[in-house]
Amino acid sequence: MSISTGMLDEMNVLLKFDLSTTQAGIKVHSDATPETIAASQRLFEKGLLTHADGGYLTSLGYEAAQHVQSAVMILR
């Protein structure tokens, strides 16, 4: 299984979240790259984010962000 560019963009959005608190969200601004905006929209559609432009992680999104952030730490 390979990782598509779109999946990498989604993982990069998930890496932006501070997992030490559930009270910290993110805002994907209109001047963000088109790839980041699209990735945020897809994560929202998949039920991982509360808003299409970021917002907060859902419980599924929190779990996904934990996995992505752990994988990056291991691979570094």
Rank of each mutant, 00 (worst) to 15 (best):
Q41L: 07
V28T: 05
V28C: 00
I26E: 02
L15W: 00
L60G: 08
T50W: 10
G54Y: 09
L19K: 06
I26C: 03
L60F: 11
G55S: 12
I37H: 01
D9K: 07
H29L: 09
E45A: 14
A24M: 04
Y56E: 09
I37D: 01
G54N: 09
G47N: 12
L14D: 03
Q23L: 14
G25L: 05
T50E: 12
E10N: 02
V28Y: 00
K46L: 15
L48E: 11
T36F: 01
S59K: 14
I37Q: 15
S20G: 04
D53G: 10
H29R: 07
S40R: 02
H29P: 02
L43I: 01
R42M: 06
V13T: 02
G55C: 09
F17E: 00
A38N: 12
S30E: 13
S59R: 14
K27C: 03
T50A: 10
L14W: 03
H51K: 15
F44G: 06
Q23K: 15
L60Q: 14
V28N: 02
N12T: 07
G47T: 14
L48Q: 13
A32S: 13
Y56V: 01
A24F: 07
D53H: 12
L57A: 07
L60I: 01
L15V: 03
L8N: 13
K46F: 15
E35L: 06
L49Q: 06
R42N: 11
H29V: 04
Q41D: 12
S40N: 05
L48W: 08
L19E: 04
G55D: 11
G54L: 10
A52R: 14
L60C: 04
D53V: 10
S30G: 05
K46V: 01
I37S: 02
Q41V: 09
A32Y: 12
A24W: 06
K16S: 13
K46C: 10
M7A: 10
L8I: 13
R42W: 00
V28Q: 00
G54D: 12
L15F: 00
R42Y: 00
N12M: 06
V13C: 02
V13L: 05
S30R: 13
G54I: 06
L19V: 08
D9G: 06
A52S: 15
P34V: 08
D18H: 05
G47P: 05
L48R: 13
G54P: 12
S30V: 04
S30W: 07
K16R: 15
S20M: 06
D53S: 15
L60R: 14
L19C: 08
M7E: 15
L8F: 10
G54E: 09
L60D: 15
T21K: 08
G47E: 12
R42T: 09
D31W: 07
K27N: 09
S20L: 06
A39P: 04
M11G: 05
R42A: 12
Y56R: 11
L8A: 11
N12A: 10
A38Q: 15
E45S: 10
Q23V: 03
E10V: 01
T22H: 07
T21N: 12
Q23R: 14
A24E: 13
A39Q: 08
K46W: 12
G55R: 11
F44S: 03
T33L: 08
G25E: 04
T21G: 05
F17P: 01
L57W: 13
S40A: 15
L8V: 10
T33G: 14
E45H: 11
E45L: 03
L19I: 10
T33C: 00
S40V: 02
L57E: 12
